[in-house]
Design a protein around this nucleic acid. Structure first.
Lengths: 241, 241
DNA sequence: TTTACTTATAGTATTTTTTACTTTAAGTTT
DNA sequence: AAACTTAAAGTAAAAAATACTATAAGTAAA
């Protein structure tokens, strides 16, 4: 690359091109929810370094790709799905975090219903599976730290944004929603009061359908009203549970 | 650098070294607060590109420096101060955000009381000064977007973390605190109720000192009780205003 | 087909918190 | 000494959160 002298940027006179030696990667913390447990999708690495170790799915960002596109690619390769909720949460850039060079990594977390999506092991992953977040294996690189920060971020944000709904199927019962929030916030809520609170937000649409194949009174199914949420937010409404 | 073949990481067989061409920078949104206005510290660039434009203070991260250290350096050069509250908020990595190469930038925001710290223009900044956040100049690169995201982050986080105290002097009155929160959240609070709410959190220590040089009844001075906040947090307390 | 059982859902009081407002206190300025 | 300004305490009404009770609607077993 042609690096004219006016691209000196700092006080010390190091040429610009000497700063262009970073690698940049994205790592995805993919959350799921199944049978009352919050889960995360991990791969078993099929390449050095850390071949055979469990790790977060991720990739080196190609020089011509934007970060979000790169993160979406990772997810698409794993689940076959696009248009999944995904949000950046932190960037990790310690000097020695990668054994082969200076690689900073941008952490994203995304939310998918575990039941809905069967992960696909691709060539760069020997295997892939869901782990409960309270029963995790050892992880490659500094992925333990990244994952922990992702979990903390989710647990904090879930209180102030309706991200919880993304972890359920499109149609869900109020009890399922309550179970999810109890798992995420590890606490217990009173059932009638939880119902009242959620319904009073006016963010759910009650469907003309009932739960099926349950051995008790079936509950009504609801779906999240995204349009209504957008409208309320414009009026300064802040989701708070 | 020696790049053994087992460092191929992706499905396409691009050698690892071809990914190591990123630049990484940090940009700091330095917030202050003065006379009822939230402010931000900007520099006038003294180097190409965008020489003469206003910009966020920042620097290219040296190959042997951690991100936080680099961000702290930037702040130290500007204010002469270290040990300032600073937090990462977002990483911007669009392909074309820098005219001279692929440079991703990690955004940090920090909080200093504007009165306390006189910014120092260094060799890489022609000038430097505080701007009210509702009266900003045009900015270099994509700094407008970065700054806006920083402002949004502060306004969101200020509701759930006691970051507001960082913007005041160590000793402050309850009215000053209220003015700050009213500026940050742009809303108005009832004075007696604000007092009650803040004091009931038990996070302030009342000092044996009064305001001075005011032409009315002087208010009591308080300081933030960091130890108490740490303790409360361990018990699951969540600051909420 | 009746009875027991499970979970959903509605309703109702009690307590706590928030909000709105009033009063008094303590200083400065004229 | 009177007027003025802001601090700070108090109080009552409204709203929200909480705890609890009752009923409804299904399945499963007797």
């Amino acid at each position: 690359m042609n690096t004219p002298s006016h691209f000196f940027l700092s006080e010390n006179n190091i040429p610009f091109r000497d700063y262009l030696k970073f690698g940049l990667s994205v790592d995805c913390v993919v959350f799921g929810y199944n049978e009352g447990k919050v889960q995360v999708l991990l791969i078993e690495r099929n390449a050095e370094p850390f071949k055979g170790s469990w790790a977060l799915p991720g990739e080196l960002v190609p020089m011509n790709a934007n970060l979000e596109d790169s993160a979406n690619d990772v997810l698409k390769n794993l689940t076959g799905l696009s248009n999944i909720f995904m949000e950046q949460f932190f960037t990790f850039g310690s000097v020695d975090r990668h054994p082969a060079g200076r690689v900073a990594t941008v952490g994203y977390y995304s939310l998918v219903g575990s039941n809905n999506y069967r992960p696909i092991a691709s060539s760069w992953a020997k295997s892939i599976r869901w782990f409960d977040i309270d029963d995790l294996p050892a992880l490659a690189f500094d992925h333990k730290r990244i994952l922990q920060k992702g979990i903390n971020t989710l647990k904090r944000r879930v209180r102030y944004r309706p991200v919880g709904f993304e972890l359920l199927s499109k149609k869900f019962t109020l009890s399922e929603l309550q179970d999810l929030y109890e798992a995420l916030l590890d606490s217990k809520f009173d059932k009638p009061n939880f119902r009242k609170k959620i319904l009073s937000m006016d963010l759910l649409i009650q469907l003309d359908e009932l739960q099926e194949n349950v051995s008790h009174r079936p509950a009504k199914l609801f779906k999240f009203d995204e349009n209504r949420y957008r409208l309320l937010r414009e009026d300064g409404f802040v989701f708070d549970i």
